[in-house]
Design a binder for these strands. Sequence first.
DNA 1: GTGGTCTAGACCACT
DNA 2: GTGGTCTAGACCACC
Lengths: 120, 120, 120, 120
Amino acid sequence: MEWNLSDNRPIWLQLKEQIAHGIVTGTYPTGARLPSVRELAADAGVNPNTMQRALSELERDGLCRSVGTMGRMVTEDTEKIDALRRTIAKDVVQQYIIGMARLGYTYADAIRELEEYEHE
Amino acid sequence: MEWNLSDNRPIWLQLKEQIAHGIVTGTYPTGARLPSVRELAADAGVNPNTMQRALSELERDGLCRSVGTMGRMVTEDTEKIDALRRTIAKDVVQQYIIGMARLGYTYADAIRELEEYEHE
Amino acid sequence: MEWNLSDNRPIWLQLKEQIAHGIVTGTYPTGARLPSVRELAADAGVNPNTMQRALSELERDGLCRSVGTMGRMVTEDTEKIDALRRTIAKDVVQQYIIGMARLGYTYADAIRELEEYEHE
Amino acid sequence: MEWNLSDNRPIWLQLKEQIAHGIVTGTYPTGARLPSVRELAADAGVNPNTMQRALSELERDGLCRSVGTMGRMVTEDTEKIDALRRTIAKDVVQQYIIGMARLGYTYADAIRELEEYEHE
DNA sequence: GTGGTCTAGACCACT
DNA sequence: GTGGTCTAGACCACC
């Protein structure tokens, strides 16, 4: 997994978001075992405690669960994962609108540019 | 200015892009003086040589020009800036499509989601 | 405040419960300022991080909120506090039933003993 | 046996109460041999002298007796044990009333809550 | 000074 | 080995 951490926002939050993204995109498939806290932490180059927090929050949202000494499993509740997908998509849409707005494009402009993209 | 540097692409390129973005969005208005290389480098936390390269490339694209001891000025060629705006917008559009595709959305889905966003 | 910590259960959980109890019983009145994390931690004889966690969880439940540099305030949502009171009461009732059951008393016995208590 | 010692009351008293509780609930059955003072003290993590005091008081109440080199035996006087059961039950009842009172419940409230518990 | 976050390192219980 | 918890100590942003 590729980790992209900027400061100015809590690292654990960014980790959580990126793991959630990985769950939705299939990096961590439904029902699969997640790497251990220590593995993930080493991979991302953060302290295990920080990664632990990210995973705890993820678990609180019902996206994974710990299975004792077996590690953590991605939830098998596909409805929950779909809900997450929609939430992330909403955010992508909003970021697109904001990005275009910063360039001086209105909401209508943003739609038009997107539609015109096909014809190229 | 807020610098957001990831490490898997050339730093100077990312710097160039972000300064270009600043020119388009008005952080560095048409005809205004850019901060010095050393200032920018210190602000971004990079080596002045790296920032120098970013600015040289920017100058090569005609988006700014050195005026001897006065530092660098943003171009006053609004047509050039508009072209840059359109280029960046194209990239934003493409990134949006890619982002949605990673979530499993087709091009048509991406348009629909964008159109539905207004109704919320 | 009197802290009563047993091991074999997470300390942060016990801290949270006891602060919640304090909110319901008026030790920390509605809308009042809570002592700082460091004060509470020193008072309870635990690490500030542990107390921090207890308070974060309390905040997540909407029972208090941080007000930047002003510290934490107990919520003013009396309905929420009443709900907490009912939750704690339920637990007290259950503990009573369990306690009596361990002594060999049935549920009906437990009620009878309670009713007879008045006549003494 | 699980020992739960708080520090604002004499340790020996708490030990005595908990052993008495164990006699009533069957952890130490009627007529059975109690563990040695040293065993009990080690288990509870207290000084043997403290445990010795707890057991002496218990013996003074007639709930157990030393049998020379054989250690201590729980009394076989079931009437005495039943009396103890009633005494402890009275205390449980009182603690329940106090606990509910701290939450703002009257004696009548405490009875009502207990009766309503069944219907859930 | 406040809350919040992060790191480092330790301990424990355990499908 | 795993997750979970706890401690110690540090840094930051905000007033």
